[in-house]
């Protein structure tokens, strides 16, 4: 009689633990969806405000702090649309894509680096092809990029974020795409500005 009781306790504990895991998954998803929605609303408001009152040509750009909304990244062919926040730490990447600090911003000349999780927002990147169009929308306007190439690098290969001619946008996510835990490599997508 002792053994069935033990099994009941064990079974109950496992089910509770499993439910806790699923609940945390749901919670993370909910937080991310909420953050994406809020950021989207903010961007829409900012764009309409900018249309209503155009900024002076020499007006200073807003300073970005950690967690601020940078803009929206869209890849129409892959139906990918994600809001990008300033920063690339775990907290930011739970909410959406992150602008890698020290890389350029859309309004600047240089290489804009954006990272996101390979098992959520950037999962479709495994299907990206050269010449795919990437759009980046900010309150200042829409920048268009075209994919030039992709590569797989080690996490220490930060030179992929370096400024180089014809390299205006670099997307970073983990590789392989289907892998449990911290993936050993990074999937890199390079794109150049077209408009």
């Amino acid at each position: 009689m002792q053994k069935p009781r033990l099994l009941i306790c064990l079974g109950g504990a496992l089910i509770l633990g499993g439910a806790a895991f699923l609940a945390s998954c749901y919670w993370m998803q909910r937080v991310a969806t909420r953050a994406q929605q809020d950021a989207q609303n903010w961007l829409n408001r900012s764009v309409s405000d900018r249309h209503a009152v155009p900024a002076a040509p020499n007006a200073p750009h807003r300073r970005l702090n950690h967690g601020d909304v940078v803009g929206r990244l869209t890849i129409p062919r892959l139906n990918l649309s994600v809001m990008v926040f300033e920063g690339d730490d775990a907290a930011i990447l739970k909410r959406g894509a992150g602008h890698i600090p020290a890389t350029s911003l859309p309004r600047e000349n240089g290489n804009l680096g954006i990272a996101a999780h390979r098992d959520s927002y950037f999962r479709p990147l495994r299907l990206i092809r050269p010449r795919d169009i990437i759009e980046f929308t900010t309150p200042d306007g829409v920048s268009r990029y075209t994919v030039t190439d992709t590569e797989i690098v080690r996490p220490s290969d930060v030179q992929v974020l370096a400024k180089a001619p014809g390299r205006d946008l670099t997307l970073v996510t983990c590789y392989p795409f289907y892998y449990l835990g911290s993936a050993p490599e990074r999937w890199i997508v390079h794109a150049k500005k077209v408009a």
């Binding site: 009781r5 064990l10 079974g11 109950g12 504990a13 496992l14 499993g18 895991f21 390979r118 290969d157």
Partner: peptide, 29 residues
């Protein structure tokens, strides 16, 4: 380069596996 692995898939799998094991233990009891 940023750590972009994400753990939602691992959490999901762990949750499903844990519930499955719990149900198995209950049926055994």
């Amino acid at each position: 380069l940023p750590e972009t692995a994400g753990h939602s898939a691992a959490f999901l799998l762990a949750g499903i596996a844990s519930i499955g094991a719990g149900l198995f233990a209950l049926s055994l009891s």
